[in-house]
């Protein structure tokens, strides 16, 4: 019962946050809502006892990707004064997101302490005889059963890299760079010109 309540609370917050991501006019608000959405879905994963994936989502997306994203969004507004000025305005929203996250953490931690007959045992049983060690289960199938999709996913990442570089890399004309082999191959005649000049005569001697 209680895990259902928790699930619906998180699902509602997730939907709300996801809606905010696309409706908020302010990109910083959008990014913060996305953080909340990631956090909430991590909590949902924790509920189904996929702890490793939940933590990975928080570490990778919330911890690394979204922080970088926020940086980029804020970089777009180069005017520091405007950013500073906005701090007070963003504070309520930031605080709200923080409080909701804190509540979620408390809920999850609380849920693990509440006795859930059938819930934990059932899910652990479905994970195999190891008794629900997430990382071990993932490790045992990732490179065996799922090796084909895994390798393909690697090619998707390669493709994303190639496409991103192709679309943003620009070779500007007029840049100065060293061509070392040309420098080494150069001969004396290319650089040095002997000029024969009449020597200055000292007429008054």
């Amino acid at each position: 019962m209680i895990e259902k309540v928790i699930f619906y609370v998180f699902a509602a917050i997730l939907l709300l946050a996801a809606t905010l991501v696309i409706t908020a006019r302010n990109p910083v608000h959008s990014a913060l809502s996305l953080v909340l959405a990631f956090f909430t879905s991590a909590a949902l994963w924790l509920l189904v006892e996929a702890e490793f994936l939940g933590i990975a989502l928080v570490l990778v997306y919330v911890g690394a990707v979204m922080v970088l994203f926020l940086f980029v969004v804020m970089m777009l507004d180069i005017n520091v004064a405007v950013l500073r000025e906005g701090f007070a305005r963003y504070l309520p929203l930031g605080a709200l997101v923080g409080v909701v996250m804190l509540l979620e953490m408390l809920l999850v931690i609380g849920a693990s302490q509440v006795d859930l007959p059938g819930f934990a045992g059932e899910a652990a049983g479905s994970l195999g005889e190891d008794g629900g060690n997430n990382i071990r289960m993932l490790g045992s199938v990732l490179y065996t059963v799922y090796v084909y999709p895994f390798e393909l996913a690697a090619i998707v990442l390669l493709l994303a890299m190639i496409a991103a570089i192709m679309l943003t890399h620009r070779r500007r004309g007029g840049t100065k760079h060293q061509d070392i082999s040309a420098q080494v191959r150069t001969r004396k005649e290319d650089r040095l010109r002997m000029v024969r000049m009449p020597s200055e005569r000292n007429n008054d001697s």
């Binding site: 799922y146 999709p149 393909l152 996913a153 998707v156 496409a163 679309l167």
Partner: peptide, 17 residues
């Protein structure tokens, strides 16, 4: 389904670019 979807993404992502 997993392979089908990854194949589709390989195709679509290259087409977008």
């Amino acid at each position: 389904l997993l392979v089908l979807y990854i194949g589709l993404e390989l195709l679509s992502l290259s087409l977008y670019a």
